[in-house]
């Protein structure tokens, strides 16, 4: 098992082939910042003027109290039960009727413990653990996202922790054993290292795979496949409508 040492590591290829994707000579669609143009056209004369349009990356803005609904109860209960609340919670975001707590990565385990055990919170079920790669729009590009469900109160909350590539955060498997495979999947796809995980190995990709396929700088297709010499070009080289 190799753990990505730094940002410049390569992605994408079974052993002993040239690196594809990753950061050097990437054929992948690396999202640029800021995004320019509307049709993904490069290299031709722009007569429409639309090519000059710049799309901004929206910044995540914290929501001010009161949050409405049960969100106030949840945050208040967490604040009461968890002395390190002010330090651990970076931001509270309420969007589209969902509550997101942005947490410092090193505090994830403590917060999960309290979210599960405190009587006013009781998030018994860790529904989902997944990752998102915010390449070029966040310095801490890898976000790990936990969706907790309280069956007692019928509530949901989202915890979000951001780490840089090559970073790590504590595993929540000791609190939620169901996170085992889901953290393995997040490691498999994003290269997020969960410290304290009992068996952090790949779960969906083959054991000897190199690179982390769900990262934004990893191409779709174009990876040499061991099948009679066939090689499929990445979709962005076939045609694109952005």
């Amino acid at each position: 098992m190799t753990i990505e040492p730094n940002e410049s590591s390569t992605g994408g290829v079974p052993v002993s082939a040239d690196p594809v994707g990753a950061d050097v000579n990437a054929p992948a669609q690396v999202p640029s910042s800021p995004r320019k143009g509307m049709f993904g056209i490069t290299g031709t004369g722009d007569v429409s003027g639309f090519g000059g349009l710049v799309r901004r990356h929206p910044e995540i803005v914290g929501t001010a109290k009161p949050y409405g609904g049960y969100f106030d109860e949840v945050t208040d209960a967490l604040e009461e039960a968890y002395p390190g609340f002010a330090d651990a919670i970076e931001k509270v975001v309420v969007d589209r009727g969902e509550l997101t707590l942005h947490i410092k990565p090193e505090r994830v385990l403590e917060v999960a413990q309290i979210m599960r055990d405190d009587e006013a919170l009781r998030f018994e079920l860790c529904s989902s653990v997944s990752g998102v790669d915010y390449l070029n729009s966040d310095a801490r590009r890898l976000h790990v996202i936990y969706h907790l469900t309280s069956m007692t109160y019928r509530r949901r909350v989202r915890l979000e922790a951001a780490i840089p590539a090559g970073g790590s955060l504590p595993s929540v498997t000791s609190v939620y054993p169901t996170a085992d495979w889901q953290e393995r999947e997040t490691y498999d796809m994003f290269g997020v290292v969960f410290t304290g995980h009992p068996n952090l190995t790949r779960v969906l990709m083959p054991d000897d795979w190199e690179g982390f396929p769900q990262r934004k700088d990893y191409p779709l297709g174009g990876v040499p496949v061991e099948y009679k010499g066939a090689e499929i070009p990445p979709p962005d080289q076939r045609r694109v409508y952005q």
Binding site: P31, R55, H57, P58, S127, S128, S130, G131, V132, D133, S137, I145, H147, P177, T178, D180, W181, Q182, E185, Q214, Y241, Q242
Partner: peptide, 24 residues
């Protein structure tokens, strides 16, 4: 879990599939 960056394509979609979780 669906994430949009404002574009015409999904930025990220994760499916929490019950088969995957239950098999544990």
């Amino acid at each position: 879990h669906a994430v949009s960056d404002g574009g015409t394509h999904p930025y990220r979609v994760h499916m929490r599939d019950p088969s995957f979780v239950n098999l544990q």
